[in-house]
């Protein structure tokens, strides 16, 4: 569904991604693992065309490069950035409605009612301003808002970052629900155990390069690799 071929990305004159190639199949959950600054987030930003890059990025076979971010969203790519980027002066419900659009096939599987079913907490705080939410609530809202756009793939950038363990469990359960519904997920995650519990396959990043591609099972059985990824 999503394929990157030999992607290089740049911040100004500094190159931060080197020859990245990866693919995410339909209905698959793939995780990008690696230390801070390894280029995982930049990979997602390149896909949304928010950073300068070269190489090919294909979504269902058609190129995304050169398209505007809103156009990329329209063809079915949902993106939940790591800073969540909730609109603080809009209520929870207004934030959700802002994300609302039909899927590329004109169908709207995710309505506001469906979103409230999966995120019951958001229904309770529907009228509250986005600026007055806890970190966990913001993260839920950010994911829910992306779903309102009925994407075919959703890219999650560090959804569990900075959240309490109880909330992290809730989030993992929510992402697992998305997987059960055959949503394609590309996950960037520092929390290796969370990533391994969700993803079938992982790409390992190091200093802007992909140094390996492994199944989650392989990583789970490889203590030294796990230690390296955990950065301990």
């Amino acid at each position: 569904m999503l394929e990157l071929r030999n992607v290089n990305a740049f911040y100004g004159r500094a190159q931060v991604l080197f020859d990245i190639s990866l693919n995410v199949g339909e209905g698959e959950c793939v995780a990008l693992l690696g230390r801070n600054g390894a280029g995982k987030t930049t990979t997602l930003l390149s896909t949304m065309n928010l950073v300068t890059h070269s190489g090919e990025i294909l979504f269902k076979g058609s190129p995304l490069s050169g398209r505007q971010p809103f156009d990329i969203a329209k063809v079915g790519v949902g993106f939940v950035p790591d800073s969540r980027r909730i609109f603080p002066t809009l209520s929870v419900e207004e934030n959700l409605n802002l994300g609302k659009k039909a899927g590329h096939d004109g169908q709207a599987k995710w309505s506001i009612d469906r979103v409230y079913e999966v995120f019951p907490k958001l229904r309770q705080i529907a009228g509250r301003d986005g600026g007055n939410l806890s970190g966990g609530e913001q993260q839920m809202l950010s994911i829910a808002r992306a779903l309102m756009g009925n994407p075919e793939i959703v890219m999650l950038d560090e959804p569990t970052e900075g959240l309490a363990p109880v909330i992290v469990e809730d989030l993992i359960e929510i992402i697992a629900t998305l997987k059960r519904e055959r949503m394609t997920v590309l996950l960037v995650e520092q929390n290796v155990s969370a990533a391994l519990s969700l993803a079938e396959r992982c790409y390992i990043y190091d200093h802007g390069y992909i140094t390996g591609e492994k199944t989650s099972r392989e990583i789970a059985g490889d203590d030294s690799l796990k230690r390296e990824l955990l950065g301990v």
Partner: peptide, 10 residues
């Protein structure tokens, strides 16, 4: 930028 990421024609 986030408005654009959500699919609105900025």
């Amino acid at each position: 930028e986030m408005v654009s990421i959500l699919g609105m024609n900025l």
